[in-house]
């Protein structure tokens, strides 16, 4: 079966060093970006940088770049299902309107006196 025919790829320490350096620089960058007021794009930039970092870790540290196709399929399936969970649920919150036309959360102010246990 062709699935077993792949040889192990050894990533060199130099490559690892380059990746960790990039990761540290990106960490600095994300902290820096947080102190700039980008409005609603702050979170977008933070997530973008985090995703770049995660991708580097997956591809190089975890050797996904050199892995067989089915490993990549597993990774993509994981991301896809996470997206299903997040976006399909958020589609409810984004469009939830009650009979008065009030959007989620239906009650903006809850009395201060309500404690932790209602």
């Amino acid at each position: 079966m062709s699935e077993h025919e792949h040889t192990e790829h050894i990533v060199s320490p130099g490559m690892y060093l380059a990746i960790i350096t990039t990761l540290l620089i990106l960490t600095g960058l994300t902290v820096g970006a947080a102190f700039v007021n980008l409005g609603r794009f702050n979170i977008a930039v933070a997530l973008l940088i985090a995703t770049v970092k995660a991708t580097l870790v997956v591809l190089i540290f975890m050797h996904a770049k050199y892995a067989p196709e089915r490993t990549k399929l597993v990774i993509i399936a994981g991301i896809f299902w996470l997206a299903l969970l997040l976006f399909m649920t958020l589609s409810d919150y984004a469009s939830r309107v009650d009979y008065r036309g009030v959007r989620y959360p239906m009650t903006q102010i809850i009395s201060h006196t309500l404690g932790n246990r209602g």
Binding site: T30, V31, A46, I49, M62
Partner: peptide, 25 residues
């Protein structure tokens, strides 16, 4: 075990900006 450890690292890569970096500016 390396794969597992890197995954835990990836989780933190997301947690750090999500928890520590909201509205820092």
């Amino acid at each position: 075990v390396g794969l597992y450890w890197h995954f835990v690292d990836i989780v933190w890569i997301y947690l750090f900006p999500l928890l520590y970096l909201i509205d820092r500016h």
